[in-house]
């Protein structure tokens, strides 16, 4: 538990540290807003339409494939820690797990889901 005290303190400190100069910046810096200055910056051109443009589904697929690999690590890291003491059977079980994931990657690749269009 005590080892997490350090992390908690560090994260809180790290959160407060950059907040101080931002506050100082608002106090020390000039504050003269006007309509032009506060408008959205688009290289001098007025913004056309909504900012929340619709994105293509490609982003979603990449995020999904990443999610699959991210969840994989829940299972694989404990296996990697125990690896030194595992019998051949245990190692092969882990390898089968990885190969199943590799299959998923191959599927995505062959289906063209990994092409950036």
């Amino acid at each position: 538990m005590s080892e997490w005290t350090f992390i908690a303190l560090l994260l809180v400190t790290a959160f407060i540290f950059p907040a101080i100069p931002i506050v100082a910046g608002t106090l020390l810096g000039p504050r003269k807003p006007n309509e032009m200055k506060n408008s959205t910056y688009e290289c001098g051109v007025e913004t056309v339409g909504d900012t929340w443009v619709q994105f293509k589904v490609q982003y979603y697929i990449f995020a999904l494939v990443f999610l699959v690999f991210d969840i994989e690590l829940i299972f694989l890291y404990p296996w990697a820690v125990a690896y030194n003491q595992l019998p051949l059977f245990g190692i092969v079980a882990g390898v089968v797990f990885i190969i199943t994931l590799a299959e998923a990657l191959v599927y995505a690749w062959r289906k063209g889901a990994l092409e950036w269009l």
Binding site: P18, A24, G25, G29, R31, P33, K37, N38, S39
Partner: peptide, 23 residues
């Protein structure tokens, strides 16, 4: 940089806008 103005765009979503650099 400390003496420069922090411009907050009028359309911006203030709390996430200021929270992002801290995070």
């Amino acid at each position: 940089l400390l003496s420069k103005e922090i411009i907050i765009p009028s359309q911006a979503d203030l709390i996430p806008f200021l929270l992002a650099p801290l995070l």
